[in-house]
Design a protein around this nucleic acid. Structure first.
Lengths: 159, 159
DNA sequence: AAACTTTAGGTTATAATATAACAATATTGT
DNA sequence: ACAATATTGTTATATTATAACCTAAAGTTT
């Protein structure tokens, strides 16, 4: 676990680090981190809450970007392909990836109260996949895990 | 692993067993397995492929049931609440549960070629949740895992 | 630099999935 | 039979996502 979003931290450095990694990955793969793409990535990293595509549209509009659905979906797809963000299927929402560039399953806990999502160590998912591959003869290409519940902060507030 | 959907099996007995379990669970919990609900459950169990809500609508219509979206979503929600089916979020689709009545995370492998889904032993997911609870102080209430790839049959056909 | 190719973005329309809100009916408990 | 509750019917609409086609920008080759 490289960080804990439910603890106080210098969030500016989260965003900063995400942008640096993005720039590096783009360069390495010969892709372009265009203004929309970078801005969408920053918006996804605005906090640690998964954000919906349609939440981004008005924000892009405010900043003078084109803001039709294809624009934001293209940017999101680009970022997904590069592994810079993950998609939280159960929420139809997107969240920044903590360690882009290292192939790994999407594995998150999301607090049902505050909405903040914590990326989890996904190594156990690897075991699950291997076991299933062995027992069933399947070939696993992708995997995702989503946990829901209460974060420490919202547990306290509930009592 | 109680069964392997990628191997030949008497599918009639899958459906039969699912219906029996459904009737038992409904009785135990004082809920009613009404005609639409039962029919939707049967349709979900028609094969081992996750089925979308909107795929069910015309089938219900054919049989003279009302077939507006709320009808099918209500039936699906009922079956989800009782743990008789699971939702595959990455597909917006629904699939029968192999062991309803026993609380457990949703844990599936889905073949990207043939679409057939295999429910997996979810005990490893329990470890993941416990570990996360311990390390982060979170409280996990729900979890789901979805694997994608190629089943044994589709691997063969690909070569 | 001009011509060409490739990649990205703009635009309009529409598809696919899901829910809100309220009325009508059926079932259960008294 | 009556009231209370649960279920279903119905209409409308919200939310999420993609298709298709066109324009513009950036990179490549000559």
């Amino acid at each position: 676990m490289t960080q804990n979003v439910y603890k106080h931290h210098d969030h500016h450095s989260c965003v900063d680090s995400a942008l640096n990694k993005a720039r590096r990955l783009c360069e390495e793969s010969g892709q372009r981190l265009t203004p929309v793409r970078q801005r969408v990535l920053e918006m996804v990293w605005a906090n640690h809450k998964p954000v919906g595509a349609y939440d981004l549209l008005p924000k892009l509009a405010e900043e003078g970007f084109n803001s039709a659905p294809p624009t934001v979906y293209r940017a999101l797809d680009f970022l997904l392909d590069l592994g810079l963000i993950h998609r939280i299927s159960s929420l139809n929402a997107f969240i920044g990836c903590n360690h882009p560039g290292e192939a790994h399953p999407s594995c998150f806990f999301v607090c049902r109260e505050c909405g903040r999502a914590q990326e989890l160590d996904s190594r156990l998912m690897g075991s699950l996949a291997s076991k299933a591959e062995e027992e069933l003869g399947i070939k696993v290409e992708q995997q995702m895990t989503e946990l829901m519940g209460l974060c420490p902060i919202c547990q306290k507030e509930a009592s």
